[in-house]
């Protein structure tokens, strides 16, 4: 990237940078001063973990246009890898061990993403959906039967390292990473694959390579969320990472709008908090999600927020549009 473009990005996202800083200061000061109780603090961390997950799935589903039904599986790999590492490395300082654990979890998820992506993307069609669906089912069987993952009882005694600054840092990293990727030439190549893979490959874009790369990145970010989750919860059970959790994440992506980062963030906030507040509806939750998926696809396939992003430019344009309409009326 040359300087002009970089400056352009900074200007384009100036509002978002300010919002990110303000958000951190606001929430952190609420936590430090003790205004938020421990339940609220937990919910906030969970919301941020779900945001990272939704953003990562949005890469595969929104930007690449491929359906992944085993995202919880990648999360599980990241979670277990990181947790097993930090549990076996008590001699390292906890912060450092946690950091290395996160990196290892991401790498491991990425490796699995690669192993799945290569056969799935070799031919045109929706094979990724079926392979990831099977993968999501099988990873929990493996976790239950392998000797070092704690079996069906789960893995407990993980140091609770995940606090607000950690999840916030990871969230900002995810956001910046995706923006930088999607703004680069590689990002345009990824979008071109989504729009028309034949046209993309005739223009010299290596379609399979870009599909695999994007999918690996998506898996790695899911691993990041998993590692954070493991050290937030303190214990891991294989049933947590089942098919329904993958569907939860997908519902967030679809609800927010495939390809919209703002939408993903807002959807993760809404769809994490609302079910937690409405416990009475718990048994109807999946039913409602199912209806939502069907109705959204028929009536509003772009999601609630479509492909819009909350940026300074968008606000300025919308403001002008509204003002223009006012003038016409007058």
């Amino acid at each position: 990237m040359d300087k002009a473009i970089r400056k352009n990005i900074l200007k384009k996202y100036s509002l978002n940078i300010v919002l990110l800083l303000l958000g951190f200061i606001l929430i952190q000061s609420l936590i430090v001063t003790g205004v938020l109780n421990s339940y609220a603090k937990q919910m906030i961390i969970l919301v941020f973990i779900n945001m990272i997950l939704t953003l990562s799935l949005n890469m595969a589903t929104g930007f690449l246009g491929e359906l992944c039904l085993g995202h919880a599986g990648f999360m599980a790999i990241g979670a277990y890898t990181a947790a097993i590492f930090t549990k076996n490395m008590p001699m390292l300082p906890p912060g450092l061990a946690f950091f290395i654990g996160i990196l290892l979890g991401m790498i491991m998820s990425g490796v699995f993403g690669f192993l799945i992506g290569v056969p799935a993307f070799r031919l045109e069609g929706d094979y990724l959906a079926i392979i990831t669906l099977a993968f999501g089912q099988i990873i929990s069987i493996f976790i239950r039967s392998l000797p070092f993952t704690g079996g069906a009882l789960g893995l407990s005694g993980i140091k609770r390292m995940t606090n607000f600054p950690w999840v916030y840092g990871a969230f900002v990293f995810t956001l910046v990473f995706i923006i930088c990727l999607m703004f680069s030439g590689h990002g345009r190549a990824i979008l071109s694959v989504r729009e028309d893979s034949i046209a993309a490959s005739s223009s010299g874009v290596n379609v399979v390579k870009y599909k695999v790369i994007t999918f690996v990145f998506s898996a790695m970010l899911a691993g990041l969320a998993g590692a954070l989750y493991a050290h937030f919860q303190g214990n891991l059970v294989p049933t947590k990472f089942d098919y329904n959790y993958s569907i939860d994440i997908m519902v967030m992506v679809v609800f927010g709008g495939m390809g919209s980062m703002t939408g993903s963030i807002l959807a993760a906030i809404i769809l994490t908090l609302v079910p937690a507040l409405l416990q009475g509806l718990a048994q109807y939750r999946m039913l409602l999600y199912a209806l939502m998926l069907i109705l959204m696809m028929i009536f509003r396939p772009d999601g609630v927020f479509g492909r819009k992003e909350l940026t300074y430019d968008w606000i300025r344009q919308t403001y002008r549009k509204i003002r223009g309409r006012w003038k016409e009326d007058a």
Binding site: E66, L67, M250, V254, M286, A290, L291, M292, L293
Partner: peptide
């Protein structure tokens, strides 16, 4: 798009 149809199929399965 195929993606929409696939997601609907998932929705029907869940339903």
């Amino acid at each position: 798009s195929r993606l929409s149809a696939l997601i609907t199929a998932i929705g029907v399965s869940l339903l």
